[in-house]
Design a protein around this nucleic acid. Structure first.
Length: 301
DNA sequence: GCGTCCAGGTCTACC
DNA sequence: GGTAGACCTGGACGC
């Protein structure tokens, strides 16, 4: 086993743990939080099929990455790890307009103090979409179970470390297997069809992080994936940098009713109107508003 | 132990 | 375009 270290400089207004805990992704395989060591671990699959285990911590204003790999990592390999980490922690995105708006609203100023606002994503768009489909119409424990099964049964393995399955791996199994072993139920044909479209290059989902699209175009692309409805598309859009997108589920609605309406139910249109002044950032304001308690009570860890 | 409900929804058929 | 009904799973709850 080869070990090496990598240091990643943090941008301004960035908080490692606020980003890691920005929503549930860090709780899903192949991510694994180690509370004792105050670190998060993930296994990544690099070019040339190299697997590398990455343990991330932020002891100072720098992120430290401990790498373990089967082969000695080249400079290019390490650069690739750095790029992937910076990408899933949203370190290179321009949040200045968002923080400028935050400064103008006293009830949101806590966001700056906590370094909140960056929503962690997975190492690939493919992984984000699969996981998002696995959050639909079920409780969180089932989402965890499905993603665990995907990683453990279909992810590439090296010395106990496992990466998220490739599109090819998921595309190559039967619906029967996904139903029986992954326990994905009716989502199974959706997951396989999506993986097949990606594996056959009919759908280039990874370009969605690179090529600028309008929110309308991106939404249309996402909704072309079976199993991705309004809720999943809205959440995925925010993971793709389109913060005008709203996304409603039973949890977030209940939080809004509790926080702003004394528990009284209102329509999604009314909720959207509540954040309308934030225009192209309204989806992100909505999310940080709904999760404010997490930062006050839960963090760090 | 068993039945029912529902959760970080979506699709399809029908109107 | 709006809506009812079906769809997997597993934990929580009431009995």
């Amino acid at each position: 086993m080869h070990r090496s270290l990598l240091t990643i400089e943090e941008p301004r207004l960035f908080n490692f743990w606020s980003t890691v805990n920005s929503h549930g992704w860090s709780d899903l395989a192949p991510f694994l939080i180690d509370k004792d060591r105050q670190s998060i671990e993930v296994t990544l699959r690099l070019a040339r099929h190299r697997l590398v285990s990455v343990r991330l911590s932020a002891p100072s204003k720098r992120i430290q990455a401990e790498l373990r790999s089967s082969a000695l990592l080249t400079v290019a390999d390490k650069h690739q790890v750095g790029r992937i980490v910076r990408d899933f922690l949203r370190m290179d995105e321009d949040y200045r307009p968002f923080y400028a708006m935050v400064r103008g609203h006293p009830s949101y100023r806590w966001v700056i103090g906590k370094g909140a606002g960056r929503l962690m994503r997975a190492a690939s768009v493919f992984e984000d979409v699969v996981k998002m489909i696995c959050t639909t119409n079920c409780n969180w424990s089932l989402t965890k179970s499905m993603t665990n099964n995907l990683v453990n049964l279909l992810g590439e393995e090296w010395k106990g470390f496992r990466a998220f399955p490739t599109p090819e791996a998921l595309a190559g199994v039967s619906e029967k297997f996904v139903r029986a072993e992954i326990r994905a139920g009716y989502r199974s044909p959706f997951l396989i069809e999506f993986a097949q479209r990606v594996a056959s290059h009919k759908l280039d989902v990874e370009s969605w992080r690179k090529v600028p699209l309008t929110s309308e175009e991106l939404s249309k692309n996402l909704r072309s994936i079976k199993g991705v409805g309004e809720y999943a598309a809205g959440n995925l859009m925010r993971l793709l940098g389109h913060y005008d997108a709203m996304a409603f589920d039973s949890w977030v609605r209940a939080e809004f009713y509790k926080k702003h309406k004394n528990g009284r139910r209102v329509s999604d249109k009314t909720i959207t109107k509540h954040y309308a002044e934030f225009a192209e950032w309204k989806g992100l304001f909505f999310w940080v508003d709904m999760t404010e308690d997490w930062f006050k009570k839960k963090l760090p860890f």
